[in-house]
């Protein structure tokens, strides 16, 4: 059935709450009539009741921390951190608490919490509602970071996230919510740490994640018209990271462009470039190119924001440079 990412996430929450009564949803506006800003939790309160779909005050440290504490004691909470930018007010509960419970308690702890959060620029929401921040999260041992690029993956990965016994941050790109694709009916799980080869090709590898996987696919389509065969790898999960798929693709193509909406320093693009250089050096025929957002905040004005996010044009330019090396 064809559906949007928004609908796929909503359906998954319905299915998982139905399946396991330990699954609860909590966050700001989640039990409101419109199901939060993008209607993600629509219909949940009516079906599962306000004791399992819990509207909270605007209190991110308490939302995230309580979700962690509830997970530690037997529930499987899906907490909503409305925008990933709000990490700024609750990072301690992720970084020092949830991520570390299992390790610092010597394996006694089980923290099956999912923190759903909106990421990304492109909607004119400016510096404090548009960031990516997933590299910062992926750098923290003890949590997993998931970045679906389409509705089917959103369903498969969210189902896995909710059933996973480790803490998972599930990053939803707000510019992709309405993107539609075929989504498997019924129960659908996708394993973590397995990238998706979105397009098969042999001349160049383009790696993306979340929205940049979509941008990479668009670039591959344009390249095909020019007779260039690009392979597109969508990482799908950033931690764990499927390094094998990237390295394997490089053995075919020998050329790599990584597209990442992060700011450039310590980005996923840097991580993938480092991987290619460290472990795939012999396969490389050209320097690795990174296409990222600049080292600036996200501007509110749409005319500057358009230049902030990696565009298909910038990706095409990087590819041309790589191919002509």
């Amino acid at each position: 059935m064809k559906m949007s990412i928004r609908e796929a996430i909503n359906q998954t929450l319905h299915q998982e709450m139905e399946r396991d009564e330990r699954v609860i949803v909590l966050g700001e506006d989640v039990a409101s009539d419109q199901g939060g800003v993008y209607g993600i939790t629509d219909g949940l309160p009516a079906k599962f009741g306000l004791h399992r779909v819990i509207d909270t005050p605007i209190t991110e440290s308490a939302i995230v921390g309580a979700a962690g504490g509830a997970a530690l004691t037997g529930l499987r909470p899906v907490a909503e951190l409305m925008f990933v930018d709000f990490l700024g007010v609750c990072l301690d509960q992720i970084l020092n608490q949830i991520a570390k419970f299992r390790y610092m308690f010597g394996g006694q702890a089980r923290t099956p919490v999912v923190i759903r959060t909106m990421i990304g620029a492109g909607t004119g929401t400016g510096p404090q509602h548009s960031q990516i921040l997933y590299p910062l999260l992926a750098a923290i041992p003890g949590i997993k970071v998931v970045t679906p690029a389409n509705a089917a993956d959103a369903k498969g990965l969210l189902t896995t996230a909710i059933r996973d016994d480790d803490p998972v941050i599930f990053c939803e790109h707000k510019a992709l919510y309405m993107d539609e694709c075929e989504v498997p009916e019924g129960e659908y799980l996708l394993p973590f740490g397995q990238a998706r080869t979105a397009v098969e090709g042999s001349d160049i590898t383009i790696v993306g994640m979340s929205r940049t996987a979509v941008i990479a696919e668009e670039a591959a389509t344009q390249l095909a018209q020019k007779g260039i065969s690009a392979e597109v790898i969508d990482l799908r999960t950033l931690s764990p990271l499927d390094e094998g798929s990237v390295l394997e693709s490089l053995t075919k193509t020998g050329r790599l462009v990584v597209v990442d909406e992060s700011n450039p320093f310590c980005s996923m693009a840097s991580e993938i470039a480092g991987l290619a250089v460290e472990r795939g050096f012999d396969t490389l025929d050209a320097p690795v190119k990174r296409v990222t957002s600049p080292h600036t905040p996200v501007p509110a004005t749409p005319c500057l924001e358009a230049n902030y996010v990696p565009s298909v044009e910038r990706v095409m330019a990087a590819i041309e440079e790589t191919l002509s090396y």
Binding site: I24, A66, G69
Partner: peptide
């Protein structure tokens, strides 16, 4: 305290 609040939420939910 946020963690304890979560444990209290478990108790309340169950």
């Amino acid at each position: 305290p946020p963690i304890a609040a979560g444990a209290a939420l478990t108790a309340k939910t169950l």
